[in-house]
């Protein structure tokens, strides 16, 4: 089975594949998933593909089956923000492409639809994440009072983080602002309200933990993508460090 493409078609396919790869990278998929998804789609088009995956850019070469036409390109990935709706949407789409023989235009339309899918309403995010913070507090042994302090601190901290992301600050700085706000609220309660225990303070910043970078870094490392694994783990460590810095500063201010 051989498919003959002209130069423009190969070019379009290559650019779409790059777009898919960079979307996956910035919404928090690991390197193995990016590679299998891109290869699965290119196989459906009877093309072979070589892919170089790094944290901030992707490089691709697409060949048609006769190796008469080929196309190479490079694309920067947009700043990282975890979005599992896109990851699972693209995974579903890749199977549909194989089974229903989609053309490139259909893929592009579906990608645009996935990008425009709404996030959860802001109030829902704030409330549920704060509830998660107070659940943490309960799990580590806090009382109802500690839980409500953790709720309040998480709510305001996350709000600050969203606002500072909107102002396009450096992402690590956003984490620092959020962690500082949360811990200053929690430590004020711990210092001046007698019945609040330190659990409220230690769990009020947990919503910031870099879970996705750390778990992805580990699965990349085990998988043999050592470079990506190291880059991701250092990214996670810097986030953890920013959290610690905010916490430290607040604790120094209140002398806890």
């Amino acid at each position: 089975m051989s498919a003959v493409y002209n130069n423009n078609q190969i070019k379009e396919l290559g650019n779409t594949l790059l777009k898919i790869g960079s979307l996956l990278m910035s919404s928090g998929a690991n390197s193995r998933r990016i590679r299998t998804t891109v290869e699965r789609i290119s196989e459906a088009f009877n093309c072979s593909v070589e892919l170089l995956i790094t944290h901030r850019a992707l490089m691709i070469s697409v060949y048609d089956s006769d190796e008469n036409q080929f196309h190479s390109n490079l694309k920067r990935t947009s700043p990282h923000g975890v979005n599992f709706k896109i990851v699972s949407g693209i995974s579903k789409m890749s199977w549909k492409i194989v089974e229903e023989r989609w053309n490139i235009e259909q893929i592009n339309n579906e990608l645009n639809r996935l990008i425009s899918l709404p996030h959860y309403p802001r109030f829902v995010i704030l409330t549920m994440v704060s509830l998660a913070g107070s659940s943490f507090c309960r799990l580590f042994g806090g009382t109802i009072m500690d839980m409500s302090v953790a709720f309040l601190a998480t709510f305001i901290g996350l709000f600050i983080r969203q606002e500072s992301i909107k102002q396009k600050f450096n992402p690590y700085l956003c984490v620092f602002f959020a962690s500082f706000t949360s811990s200053i609220i929690a430590s004020a309660f711990v210092k001046y309200a007698g019945s609040i225990q330190e659990y409220a303070l230690s769990t009020s910043v947990l919503y910031l933990i870099p879970g996705v970078p750390l778990i992805n870094s580990f699965s990349d490392l085990i998988d043999g993508n050592i470079m990506n694994g190291i880059v991701r783990s250092i990214n996670g460590l810097i986030i953890a460090f920013s959290i610690a810095l905010g916490l430290l500063l607040a604790m120094q201010i209140f002398q806890i």
């Binding site: 975890v82 979005n83 699972s88 549920m128 994440v129 998660a132 913070g133 659940s135 799990l139």
Partner: peptide, 16 residues
């Protein structure tokens, strides 16, 4: 509580 914490992070990560 474990479930609620998981849900909170799921919503933060924008799962379907």
């Amino acid at each position: 509580w474990f479930g609620l914490a998981a849900i909170g992070f799921a919503i933060l990560f924008n799962v379907p």
